[in-house]
Design a protein around this nucleic acid. Sequence first.
DNA 1: TATGGTCAGTAAATCGTTACACCAGATTGT
DNA 2: ACAATCTGGTGTAACGATTTACTGACCATA
Lengths: 350, 350
Amino acid sequence: MEKVTIQQVARAAGVSASTVSNLLNDRSERMLPATRDRITEAITQLGYRPNRAARELRTGRTRTVGLIVPSVGNPFWGAFARELEHAALAEGYNVLLCNSERDPVRERRYVEELWDDGVREIVLCTSLPSLNHLAHIVEQGLRLVTFDRPTQADDPSTVVSISINNVVGGHLAASHLTSLGHRNLTFVSGSLRSVNRTGRYQGFCSAVEAAGLAVADMTLWAGADEAPFGDVEAADVGRRAAHEIFAAGNPPTGVVAINDMTALGVCRGLRDLGLQVGRDVSVVGFDDIILADLYDPPLTTVRQPIGQMAQLAIAEIVSHHGLADGEPGRSVLLRPELIVRGSTAAPPVD
Amino acid sequence: MEKVTIQQVARAAGVSASTVSNLLNDRSERMLPATRDRITEAITQLGYRPNRAARELRTGRTRTVGLIVPSVGNPFWGAFARELEHAALAEGYNVLLCNSERDPVRERRYVEELWDDGVREIVLCTSLPSLNHLAHIVEQGLRLVTFDRPTQADDPSTVVSISINNVVGGHLAASHLTSLGHRNLTFVSGSLRSVNRTGRYQGFCSAVEAAGLAVADMTLWAGADEAPFGDVEAADVGRRAAHEIFAAGNPPTGVVAINDMTALGVCRGLRDLGLQVGRDVSVVGFDDIILADLYDPPLTTVRQPIGQMAQLAIAEIVSHHGLADGEPGRSVLLRPELIVRGSTAAPPVD
DNA sequence: TATGGTCAGTAAATCGTTACACCAGATTGT
DNA sequence: ACAATCTGGTGTAACGATTTACTGACCATA
């Protein structure tokens, strides 16, 4: 019972290894039904399972898609990883998960390592403005699907992107606040050197202007632009932001955060200061992680349909599996949805 | 630049493939420094990277450890996955992540698939009382490290377990409440058919008795024991529990939840009912996920040192890599720590 | 009766690495 | 001076699958 090879199956079924291989690769029309039965019988009898390493060495192909996220410690990425695995499994693919910790060097290392391991399709969750550090591999035929990062002008042409429309999302968040009567808003994020952040901020600004307010009067709290912060620390960013913003003069009545973790951090920071979210200050998040609904007060947020996005990503991969590269990549932009909950309300009258 | 093999490197360096292979496998003492330099030069020059499939086919070994968690959608498992990857990477291992969704069939399928892929070491996060469904593979030499599930009497003898002492944890949680003056407690979990749950409940009971109270007077809310619930739904379990418990007569003043997600659900449920956590009712969680500290009020909880546990798990794997099986497995039980925050207080006087 | 075409299946050549056995020349021990 | 040992390598056979090119046997057609 140690290890059973295709040869042993062949011997047991009284055929050659080639015939067993043919059966295994959907070429079963090329043999008598009786033979086919004998082989399948032998396979189950011996408990044979093809050796992936050998198969991959020979064919050069894998049924594995790589997934690179900033950090599964962040519930948003954890939830997305789960959805992607679900979608991939349905198509017979496996998912290999990697945490880049938002470090371009690690990101590149992972991509190269995956490539060397025979992985030819990767779902990359990055927010880097440029994909230059990966271009040399994409050119060799890697199918890259970026998630939460719309395609940029100078990306390799075969790159596919699945993302929500961040500008619309940012607009939804901010216009929700202005329509409630808020006139003094702040946008909180970490560094702005990422494409989805700039998109969301842009939407924020357009909503501010649409409400007849001056963007210049709003605050942009974009961190100290210091060390590239990890994802779990997103909450700390929000908390620190709240402390600084509300200690200063002329504090806002509404806050739009770059994502839910940061938003929760902001809420926590406000609570530290004795302010009540959903009454003294309104807070809008982004993503709609499970905890948004669980929080007290439940968080108003802009939802990303991760289940649907995961399916789209896998569909894109499946449809191109084994094809030569060269086809220009699509860019799918989904419309985000505003979920209104208890963390937002009309501003207090004073 | 398509694909560069060890042969090409050998030719470029003017040596045989064997010599290059020797260098690659830490047998570099067996050659002149000059030769070594020529080879390394050729490697970087050509951008050579060993083909994993070939290497694995030849050696039968992988530098990959499988990680099977209930669901990375749950922040606790996401955080643990991140820690494990960190620890594994430091030892030159990769982590292949799988979500079992608490389904024994999926669990088994994953283990078999990993085994077939050459993975010889797996960190399994399960709460099933029995490992029978995996015994046939463990016997073949799979190194299994269970996490958050202390070894059971009838487990295969080579299984190693890394876990906290759940009995102590349950005791810490309950005795914290009794020492605050609570006399009417409820233990909330999903189904109790899992080893860590029974352990925690046992600790809960011992603390109740130590406080001079009768276990019979306490409530055990263990779900409808219905469909095996997923992990994300842990929060829903808590919420539903709160609704039922506090709608009934003689509601408790203190709740111990099986984990933080459930605890957060309980808090949410209490809020639905207009009750204030940390004043009207005290709630203790388990795990200390990031969100515990972020919540309003911050959650009192029993911390699992996942970073340390991840390191121990990897250390266990590294020390046995490539060894023949047979050595009986250890069982490491760490002491959990109570983290007191705002969700617990003395019971209200009425 | 040649000729050609299916049918059902096989032999052998890979894929890129590693490991075992071996070897020539230099050095050492006695 | 002779064998023994060491140094710095090399040759070759696997590892387990896939795939291309082939081979008999059988049948139909002209």
